[in-house]
């Protein structure tokens, strides 16, 4: 791995201020899945950034991804099924690094995964140090059931937006529903506003 930047370790706010409405804290790390866990050897792993016209703008293999600057965010995560897990520690690459120098008018992004999962996000929610592609959890390689070898991490939105087994980001001119969003889940998913469903 290349440069290692320390993330924001620890929080100054008490936990009582860090629990979004309708959530309960858990020490567990529940596994929710919409399909079989894909087996992705790192030798075959590839991550692609795709433009709005479908053109592949950039790709990385596992070695090239490891050579990018690495960060170690410690963040709370909030699942739409109501559990919250405090102070989870990750290591990975900021999405800012992946998008550096890309000139785009895109408003949104579709995160795409091995196994066919997708989830949509505003581009602005992936930039500015708010999102990472992570490969390490709690100091160990990310286990497949939690999205390894690599997953998206967008901790300020409900965790279904943090796509497991991520294979790329596709830039979009307009918002489109992803896998869960197309069966009634919220297009944005802000846990602090309980944006669970389309009607919230």
């Amino acid at each position: 791995m290349n440069t290692l930047s320390p993330g924001f370790h620890g929080h100054t706010r008490p936990r009582s201020d860090r629990l979004p409405p309708g959530q309960y804290p858990t020490e567990q790390f529940p596994v929710l899945s919409a399909g079989p866990t894909p087996d992705i050897p790192t030798s075959a792993w590839e991550f692609a950034l795709t433009g709005t016209d479908g053109e592949r703008l950039r790709t990385w293999d596992w070695t090239g991804f490891g050579d990018l600057p690495q960060e170690e965010p410690t963040v709370d995560i909030h699942c739409v099924t109501r559990w919250t897990k405090w102070d989870t520690s990750w290591c990975g690459v900021s999405v800012d690094v992946l998008l550096e120098g890309v000139d785009t008018s895109a408003s949104h992004v579709m995160a795409e995964s091995y196994g066919g999962y997708t989830t949509n996000l505003p581009l602005a929610d992936l930039t500015g140090g708010k999102a990472w592609i992570v490969h390490t959890f709690d100091g160990l390689p990310l286990p497949p059931e939690h999205g390894g070898p690599a997953r998206l991490l967008v901790p300020h939105l409900y965790f279904w937006k943090s796509a497991k087994w991520v294979s790329g980001l596709r830039l979009l001119d307009r918002d489109e529903p992803g896998f869960w969003e197309s069966v009634g889940y919220h297009m944005y998913g802000d846990p602090w506003h309980e944006q669970r469903n389309r009607s919230d």
Binding site: L32, P36, V80, T81, W160, W180, V183, Y185, N197, S199
Partner: peptide
């Protein structure tokens, strides 16, 4: 069943149906 139900072909795992229950729909 959470956050939704995904039913897949037992042969190839392609999706057959998806069902998500929300408070109002």
């Amino acid at each position: 069943p959470r956050p939704g139900i995904t039913a897949r072909c037992p042969g190839c795992s392609a999706i057959a149906l998806r069902l998500a229950r929300h408070p109002d729909a």
